[in-house]
Design a protein around this nucleic acid. Sequence first.
DNA 1: ACCTGAACACCGTTCAAGT
DNA 2: ACCTGAACACCGTTCAAGT
Lengths: 230, 230
Amino acid sequence: MSAEPKSRARRGVDRLDILDAAFNLFDEVGEISFSIRKLAATIGVDPMTILHHFGSKDELLRAVADYALRSVEMPSATKNWRADLKAVANAYRLLAHRHPRVFPLHFRYNATGPADHISSEIVYCALRRAGLPDASAAGLGLAFYAFVLGFALAEAEGLLKAIGPAEEAELNNLDPKMYHATQDLIPALKNLDPNAVFNDSIEVFISGVADLAKLKPRLVPIPECAAKCA
Amino acid sequence: MSAEPKSRARRGVDRLDILDAAFNLFDEVGEISFSIRKLAATIGVDPMTILHHFGSKDELLRAVADYALRSVEMPSATKNWRADLKAVANAYRLLAHRHPRVFPLHFRYNATGPADHISSEIVYCALRRAGLPDASAAGLGLAFYAFVLGFALAEAEGLLKAIGPAEEAELNNLDPKMYHATQDLIPALKNLDPNAVFNDSIEVFISGVADLAKLKPRLVPIPECAAKCA
DNA sequence: ACCTGAACACCGTTCAAGT
DNA sequence: ACCTGAACACCGTTCAAGT
């Protein structure tokens, strides 16, 4: 009767141990260097032990993506729909900043996974409160999602930051006849502040939503939202 | 003196042949199944011939991403900045629709590659004509880009379409206390029209840009744009 | 000088053998 | 019943040998 707990103690790897180790390894070395065999080596088990808990590498990565999302706390809904949209966007942005290598996994595997429902609810709620009819709220909710993930992914991939000397030279080498505006904006691109860009972008989206709500107002009142929605 | 052209004829694989074949194979089988060795087999050369023309698999895929972008024709700038933004967004969306497997490569490798400069120019031009100061135009140009790529990527990954019975059941199984808005929107999500969502989203962005331009108008006139910019 | 293919150091997964 | 590790069918890339 003592054999069972003993064997458990000897090798205490369960699903969560593997998941946590997988997340940390992936976060550190990125997709190209990550492998089941390396993961197995770092936690000191046979590679097959991992595949026994997760059916395949694909499933493991899917779980890693979901695990990462759990590590940022989603905001709660408030009475201010504009603030709510911004808060949700910011949560994903934070995730991308903190774990730039893991973040792309989220987009690929899990963008509508369980942990996303909670943020979707806030977004849908906010868009209804903004005055959009349900059909528009549903569509724009998904579009907002695509925008937020796209923005965060761009930042994670290093696409959305002030340009360096190399890029500046590249832009300067373009034909001035064709790329007039691009070259005019080089000074602005050199001083780009990602936070300011984020604020402007989210402002643009929110303001545009308010306009759309005026253009196509919802005709039926909002059924009372979930408790959190106040 | 006749040996040289003969040997060229015997095995006429140059960089472009490989690139074209790589694009087609990738487009067909997707990232997981694509390999240099399979590509070599389909065009009947040694795998190392491919690596001789492209330094590594990474460089090959980078070239594939750029090659794909060339296959959609970018619109020219017009006098209507709203139409221009929409046209650029639509071009990327078309690419994602036509080549959903290749499209993610573009986001990863090449989002600021040579073939993108031409669309960036149109976007920057449009945002200036909308009345934004240069600092905002530069930032929002990149943000618009992130939005467009994010939207197209979401569609390519199948995230932005009407939900099916499985997803409906999943949403219905959520706790009604917490997911009131989500469950209310199920009918709308079942009838989601991606084209309508695209139109609404781009309208929201454009309208928001116009608002921002009113809020922070540019104080200096626009230097004459490139010829195309009319 | 250019191209080739054997060899190397990996990889995810199958499957039969162990406890 | 659960876990293991040898074996299989791959992979990208190095490098010495061919033309």
